[in-house]
Amino acid sequence: MTQVSLVDSGRLSALLREALGWNDEISSITVSAQNGSILAYSFRHNTPSVKAMRTRSTTVATAYAIAGQDSLVFEAQRTGALTVISSVADQILLAVTGPEPQGVDPYEKTVHEADSTVDGDTTDEEDPKIARLRTELETVNQELASIIREELSEMKWPEDI
């Protein structure tokens, strides 16, 4: 039988809102299932439409699935925004995204325009600003992932309710 658990999305969203304050470079944090379902989110500025969030969540889940790594850096080609993605539980992903370049609204892109690359052998070291941002996003991702893993370990199972 498949296990079913209940996630307190309100508590998780509050945790994500709090984590936005850890670093001014973070523009958004999302927790989603590997199938692209959005479990919790927090955006520093305007919250995008549900459709835009679902598209983004599905893109992140697909990139993570293709990469086959425990953690990866995802860079949107059109916007240049970096996202650090990691698994926080079985089938649950955490995505911490940095700022979008000025004058670009990533939520106005269509699925076909939102081309992206998964970090592999890139030259981030050539740009100290990008390398610093990447390090900051990875640090926040690791710290938050640890906290979320602890929160998820305390989830209620249906028989506990």
Rank of each mutant, 00 (worst) to 15 (best):
V60A: 07
T83E: 03
D90W: 03
G80N: 04
E113D: 14
A52G: 13
T139S: 14
R134A: 08
M53T: 07
D115V: 14
G98V: 04
S57N: 02
T135M: 06
E126L: 11
T83G: 02
V50Y: 04
T83D: 04
D121L: 11
A76V: 08
G103Q: 02
K109Q: 15
T83C: 06
S87V: 03
N141K: 05
M53W: 05
E100K: 00
D90N: 06
D119K: 07
Q102K: 11
A81Y: 00
V104K: 12
S86V: 04
A65P: 02
V140K: 02
V118A: 07
T139K: 11
D127E: 09
P101M: 15
M53L: 02
I85Q: 07
T62M: 10
A81N: 07
L72N: 08
A76E: 10
A52H: 06
G80A: 02
F74G: 03
A65V: 01
A76T: 05
S87M: 02
V50A: 15
T97Q: 10
A95R: 01
G68L: 03
T117V: 14
D115S: 15
Q91W: 12
A61M: 09
T122C: 06
G98P: 09
E113Y: 01
Q77N: 14
V73Y: 01
T135E: 12
E126A: 08
A131L: 05
A95Y: 01
T135G: 01
D127V: 13
